[in-house]
Write a protein that binds this DNA or RNA. Structure first.
Lengths: 240, 240
DNA sequence: CGACTTCTTGAGGAACGTCAACCGCAGTGG
DNA sequence: CCACTGCGGTTGACGTTCCTCAAGAAGTCG
């Protein structure tokens, strides 16, 4: 909740050290930080800003129906650009922290994107927007046609690609669930009970294993990929 | 399937006459057209290009699971920018025409976005990307928690905002379904049979009416909005 | 007319949501 | 230290819902 003082913070090298921001010129990083305020959020806190960069933690865009059903329509983790601005329609959803989060909110008016030497910022933002669109398309596919088991497998593999939850255990790959299971349920469009049952089913089939804490071992990533890509369709009512 | 000859086509005023492209400078429009090829697509035709602008018709990004389930993860109509490029991951989904479509594919290498006087192009593309993200968030919310009836109501209202399907009948608002019902089913994540049954239910309740052809009258847009925003949750198993 | 596709209608079953109860844990206060 | 409370998560029972399948209607094209 404080503006970023580049001098006090030791210069532009202490923040924005991840891709793609670390590829920006020093001046561009300072340009961003001059428009930025750092927020320390605890789980459940809302943010009114519509533009920012996640430094650590996880934030989500939460939407609710009139009768209280709750959905996270998008998740963002560290180094992700969050851009909820949209001109032609009312803003949809509020930005909420799902874990303790450090968020750099940006004042769009203070960003200097028009100068030619600031073109690297615009390119980085476009790149982030495109990547976000690609993730959203995959997520829509999951929601539109996959079974809960398949969605869970997709989500686990997605989390495995997140830097914050990548945890290589002693034996093979592991994933540390970056968010609450109830939040995961709201993200993949099922109920927490179904998450629990699907987890247990994947465990019984030997695809995952529960280690200490919230660590999940991916015992058979290939098989998990098969499941995630449609290997467990709804059982036919035919063929007894 | 031919490059656009701005001289032969009568100059840059004959194409890209809709928002936001008509706000670009004449030179910027020519810059786009120099990188463009116009494709005439019939329903079902695929396109390998990952960047383009829809001139008329509807295109969708189709993804399929290994067992054949098919999903349209995104739809684009006239004046929409289609940008499926993503650096870090394999392309997800192929661009397909859902109706007879005129598509302007763009060669990204020929686009001059870096020049300061071409900044309007970059801004227009960013604006389009952000609007697309906003639509995707709404769509994810529909897919994640809404019932088929609510999804259909949302889709009808979304189509009503499309220029190509806005059809004001004699009595109040109307929508002309821009795509096949089976494609609509693949878009909102239900089966065609469910579309049919939900349509009939909305009709029985007096919210919509079927006119001649594929024209659908929106008899009570407010009530339709209520339904679309969660007015018809799943019936509780309690309270006989 | 026949062949094809899209859409519709109907019957039946699997599956996921709903509800309730319980467990484990953390925080709180006596 | 223990009881109490609240929260997240798990397990079980049950019912609605929507998918599956099949067959027919309606429209299109040869």
């Amino acid at each position: 909740m404080r503006p970023v003082d580049t001098a006090q913070d030791g210069g532009p090298t202490t923040l924005l050290t991840g891709k793609p921001w670390n590829a920006l010129s020093k001046e561009s990083i300072e340009n961003i930080l001059n428009a930025a305020s750092e927020h320390i959020l605890s789980r459940g806190e809302h943010v009114t800003a519509h533009l920012g960069i996640v430094l650590s933690g996880v934030v989500g865009v939460v939407q609710e129906t009139t009768d209280g059903r709750r959905v996270y329509s998008a998740l963002f983790h560290e180094n992700h650009l969050v851009d909820l601005r949209c001109s032609a329609r009312k803003p949809n959803g509020t930005l909420t922290a799902l874990t303790p989060t450090r968020l750099l909110t940006l004042d769009a008016g203070k960003l200097d994107l028009s100068a030619p030497e600031r073109a690297d910022i615009a390119n980085a933002m476009i790149e982030q927007l495109r990547a976000h669109c690609a993730r959203m398309r995959d997520h829509c596919t999951s929601l539109a046609c996959k079974t809960p088991l398949e969605r869970l497998a997709s989500a686990l593999l997605e989390f495995h690609s997140w830097p914050c939850s990548k945890a290589n255990g002693e034996s093979g790959d592991s994933v540390r669930l970056p968010i609450r299971k109830s939040d995961l349920a709201d993200y993949i469009g099922v109920k927490p009970e179904t998450i629990s049952r699907s987890m247990r089913r994947l465990e019984k089939e030997g695809l995952i294993a529960f280690s200490e804490g919230d660590l999940i071992g991916l015992l058979n990533k290939d098989a998990l990929n098969v499941v995630a890509n449609g290997g467990r369709p709804r059982k036919s009512t035919r063929q007894g």
